[in-house]
Design a protein around this nucleic acid. Sequence first.
DNA 1: TGTACATCAGTGAACGCGCGTTCACTGATGTAC
DNA 2: TGTACATCAGTGAACGCGCGTTCACTGATGTAC
Lengths: 216, 216
Amino acid sequence: MTARRQVELLEKNKPRQERAKRTYEAILNAAAELLVEVGIERISTNLVAERAGITVPALYRYFPNKYAVLNALGAGLMDRQNAVFQQWFEDNLDEGGLESLLDNVDELLRKTLQVTRDQPGGLEVVQALRAVAPLQEVRLASHRLVAGQFAQVAADLVSIEVTEQLRCQARLSVDVGYAIVEMAMEDETLDTEAVLAEGSRMINTFWRNQLEQLQG
Amino acid sequence: MTARRQVELLEKNKPRQERAKRTYEAILNAAAELLVEVGIERISTNLVAERAGITVPALYRYFPNKYAVLNALGAGLMDRQNAVFQQWFEDNLDEGGLESLLDNVDELLRKTLQVTRDQPGGLEVVQALRAVAPLQEVRLASHRLVAGQFAQVAADLVSIEVTEQLRCQARLSVDVGYAIVEMAMEDETLDTEAVLAEGSRMINTFWRNQLEQLQG
DNA sequence: TGTACATCAGTGAACGCGCGTTCACTGATGTAC
DNA sequence: TGTACATCAGTGAACGCGCGTTCACTGATGTAC
């Protein structure tokens, strides 16, 4: 357990010149492709460097090991997922407040699905973040951040303080939301539209029910 | 993609003698321990054999590769999770029918959490099944099976045919249920009791709402 | 009950290969004057 | 505008190690007579 946690995830040299930035991006793209093709159990710095069209020491210039590469890849996706969430908040709070938020959970899931699909190897990246111990904090931190904002917004809207329960409900909703999106991507036999529609209804119903109790 | 799928997962020789059965179990236990200790990206047949106290060719007697070992480990856990589901169905259908089922979603989640915790490396096994392509079918098949039963039971209870929508809702509930259990195990900062309570309420509320629409 | 024999279970040694990592080095880029 | 120089970026070669896999083999177990 301890050994697994001591993996260095920080990047080494930041790319400064144009050429270096292209190399850096090529490494991340190669890693994403290989995550899809050979999987987390087989990906290696050797494979990534070869696919990126560079030699291995060039990769080591920017990353200390493969975990750092996957970490950078995962952090990027988490950032984009967080951005979707924040944009959704802003849009709906400006517009119709609480009602608007609840009515548009389905839009949030849809956009989250989209941003994950747009990232090459998006699903595989998320699964890797879950399954590889040194990377787990990236995903947890993202979910905690978003859930915290969610709880704060919900509390403000009904003019109460953020309670432990509210925090838990927000976090639950966030994780359930991502679970629904991942499920739609993982099982190709499922009807994506139906899954998102029913899934957002589940979250929606949960909150309407909860707000009734808080207000009434 | 194709290459990943062509991994042989079937076991080779079944253990026949007592000694062999102990060896077989030792392999699975060793794999579970190592999944926790070194992770899916580092586990190898060499490590597993060493930990199990046997030589590598002895492992190859029963399994063609490490995926087959993980497959056996995962299939065992899925079986036990399915059994929990079935037991829960039986108990509650005998007792109080639909009401009893809805009231006891929380009991189901609790028992699922328990059976996963009781399996050494239970969480890591589930995560591996998700993240490793050749193993994904094991988990999907389990979820599909349980969701199918769920849909049938629900249809019977309100005397309708199983529709596509009902099937989707059942599957959603199953995956959300497992997501809640995994979330409780993945994030140690969370209050397990609260997560299970709110999570089962989410599923419960979803179905009460849906049944109102079907019946009313 | 004893033992010979068939089958099952596990070993020791070997193989070629890809892994992570580091070194001293060459080549490319940008900038001070 | 030209060039010398500092810094940045990437290479080639090498290392020891653990990987997956197979072989001919020895040892253990169970059973037929």
